[in-house]
């Protein structure tokens, strides 16, 4: 592990770029209006980002080859989706998800 000062500098540097990504649109859009086309484009952001964040966890990347399937995460996703359909309650979904992955890993001997 690098020195305390190097890590601290890294933390500050990554903090600044992350902060700028978060606030710049808020600052700019206070002054400018988005066109109708952009608003329509952005209306797809929530489902696209949420499904991308989920699906990325179902695969293991091997650059240059097709990804392999992360079976534990895929199997744990099934009861999680089912609990979403049945309960429509985020708390239930998260608890079912965590238990599902714990049980799946136990059964797969991981």
């Amino acid at each position: 592990m690098p020195s305390f000062n190097f890590v601290l500098l890294t933390i500050v540097g990554t903090g600044v770029v992350t902060w700028l990504s978060r606030i710049t649109p808020f600052v700019l859009l206070k002054k400018f209006q988005l066109s109708k086309g952009v608003v329509e484009f952005l209306s797809f952001v929530p489902i696209a980002i949420m499904s991308a964040l989920w699906f990325e966890n179902l695969f293991v990347q091997h650059i240059g080859h097709l990804p392999s399937i992360d079976w534990a995460n895929l199997l744990a996703s099934l009861p999680t989706v089912l609990s979403a359909v049945i309960s429509k309650n985020l708390l239930v979904i998260v608890v079912v998800g965590v238990i599902s992955l714990g049980v799946t890993r136990l059964m797969m001997g991981m």
Partner: peptide, 28 residues
Amino acid sequence: PEKFGLDFALVAMFIGLLYLQLISDKSI
């Protein structure tokens, strides 16, 4: 820490929020 399945909490949350978004967003 992976032994306890806690790392799946975030994925489960995205699954839940995606599903709730799908069934409730009437604009698309």
